[in-house]
């Protein structure tokens, strides 16, 4: 670790992590701790562990609704930063892409689901954060699956990581691996899920029962795997007689 070797000592790391989370460090020492965390994964892991331990106290606080002006000001701030920052030079700029994508998704959703969701996010039922097989820390995309209110209305959606360059989707296919049998089910061309792709009942069940989603090049599941991600259930849904 560059810098002060003192921070390599386990008891010093533990002391620093616990006091960082407790909030007793001076601002100068806290900033130094944050710099060290970026360089020292062990210190960062200790801080996360203390965060999780002590955060239980926060769960005992009775909520107090924030004044309306807080969200209004945040929105204004987001919008003004988006307007002021040239595209692709700052994170605020990416909002315009998301606004467009969201609007598109919203229009499709309105048609499909017959219920408006102008400001809220429909509860995601399943989500897979797709990581490239190459050693890259950031996920490339998130694939989300939403349960529809009738057979054939469930749908799949891809959300790209706008920090990374988008990839050409032609020739890429999506697959679900069953968590028990390991059987692979084709979910079709990835390009189809760029906007919102409706799922058949067998496809919905394949996602529901999957342990992992895969993206391969070519039309065979044996083709080169480009991205993969475990499929997580995020919100429960009622298992009706006619799922999917």
């Amino acid at each position: 670790m560059p810098g002060n070797l003192r921070y390599r000592q386990p008891h010093v790391r533990e002391h620093l992590a616990s006091h960082y989370v407790l909030g007793t460090l001076s601002e100068r020492v806290r900033r130094r701790c944050e710099r060290l965390m970026r360089q020292d994964p062990e210190l960062e892991a200790l801080v996360y562990a203390w965060q999780d331990r002590m955060n239980q106290i926060n769960d005992e606080l009775a909520p107090v609704k924030a004044p309306e002006r807080v969200w209004r000001n945040i929105q204004t701030q987001l919008d003004s930063n988006r307007a002021a920052t040239p595209r692709k030079t700052g994170f605020w700029a990416r909002l315009s892409v998301w606004r467009l994508a969201t609007a598109l998704l919203l229009v499709v959703s309105l048609g499909l689901l017959l219920k408006p969701t102008p400001t809220s996010v429909q509860a995601v039922n399943y989500m897979a954060m797709m990581q490239p097989v190459s050693a890259q820390a950031e996920p490339t995309m998130i694939i989300t699956a939403y349960k529809g209110d009738a057979p054939g209305r469930s749908h799949l959606h891809i959300q790209w990581n706008e920090r990374l360059d988008r990839q050409e989707l032609a020739g890429l296919n999506l697959w679900a691996i069953d968590r028990d049998s390991g059987e692979i089910t084709a979910l079709g061309a990835l390009a189809q899920a760029q906007s919102t792709r409706l799922l058949s009942k067998p496809e919905w069940l394949a996602i529901k029962n999957s342990r992992e989603l895969l993206v391969t090049r070519g039309s065979s599941p044996d083709g080169p795997v480009l991205f993969r991600g475990p499929c997580l259930q995020l919100s429960p849904w009622e298992d009706r007689a006619t799922p999917g």
Partner: peptide, 23 residues
């Protein structure tokens, strides 16, 4: 999703957490 700069998810996060974070 906020990690990927998804604004509706940010709004949802605000709705879920603002009372507890304000407290």
């Amino acid at each position: 999703q906020v990690k990927l700069q998804h604004r509706p998810a940010f709004e949802e996060l605000y709705r879920l957490t603002n009372g507890r974070l304000y407290a």
